[in-house]
Amino acid sequence: MGELNLAIRFSCYSMLDLMQMYFKPHLPKMHYKRPLNVMEQEMLRQQAVNVVAARLSRAEPPLRKEVVEYMSDTKSHLWSMRRSKANFYRLMSVFSGFLSVGRWLGEVSTWKHPMTTVLVHILFPMLVCFPELIMPTMFLYVFVIGMWNWRFRPRHPPHMNSKLSYTDGVTTDELDEEFDTFPSTKSPDIVRWRTVT
């Protein structure tokens, strides 16, 4: 009834063998000569989902097949307006830092905030004369911004962030389009209206 500590150390005897192993193709040669097309991949994925869903439906508590399909992303090849919007907003959040730096530099160059512009004009010659201060200044700036944004952190972590998958702003038409089968079971007028918008 004690405590067991286990330490694992990964080591290699020959660096040449290790590099050779990393440069080998990961998949079998036949995969590169005759790769599976999208339909074959989807059939294999569907079979795997059926096997996993059959196994989990007998578990206690049972898990429905829809949950397994959603978790394994079986219909990932189909286009979805909700998914494209979610990816767009994710990209915007990734590049928002660069955009805000560009916007800030534009405000400095147009003297929108004179005090900030004067401080930047004082800081720039100082960093040119003492280049060893560039990294500490950047770290200080990142630290101050982090401490400033610390106040706005979420107090209670949510179980699921609905903004990541854009489920909080989805419309009924987008949901209808996403859960529609392929080929579509809707009338040609609805499909044409989807392509227009």
Rank of each mutant, 00 (worst) to 15 (best):
G2I: 07
E3Q: 15
N5A: 12
L6C: 07
A7E: 15
I8A: 08
R9I: 06
Y13A: 15
Y13C: 09
M15Y: 15
L16S: 15
D17S: 08
L18K: 11
Q20R: 14
Q20V: 10
F23H: 15
L27H: 04
K29V: 02
M30D: 13
H31K: 07
R34A: 14
L36A: 13
L36E: 11
M39K: 12
E40P: 00
Q41K: 15
E42K: 14
M43E: 12
Q46H: 12
Q47M: 13
A48W: 10
V52N: 04
V52Y: 06
L56E: 00
A59K: 05
E60Y: 12
P61D: 04
L63H: 04
K65P: 05
E66V: 00
V67A: 12
V67F: 06
E69D: 07
M71Y: 05
H77C: 02
W79L: 15
W79K: 15
K85L: 13
F88A: 03
L91Q: 08
M92Y: 01
F95T: 07
F95H: 07
S96P: 01
G97K: 02
L99D: 07
S100F: 06
S100L: 11
L105P: 01
G106Y: 03
V108M: 01
W111L: 06
H113C: 05
P114M: 02
T116L: 09
V118E: 09
I122F: 13
I122V: 03
F124P: 01
P125V: 05
L127Y: 00
F130A: 09
P131Q: 02
E132C: 03
E132L: 01
L133G: 02
M135Q: 14
P136H: 00
P136D: 03
P136L: 02
M138N: 07
V142G: 06
V142P: 03
W148Y: 09
R151T: 11
H156Y: 12
P157E: 06
S162T: 15
T167S: 15
T167F: 14
L175A: 01
L175N: 04
F179A: 03
F179Y: 10
D180N: 08
F182L: 12
S184T: 06
T185H: 03
D189S: 11
V191Y: 04
R192E: 13
V196L: 09
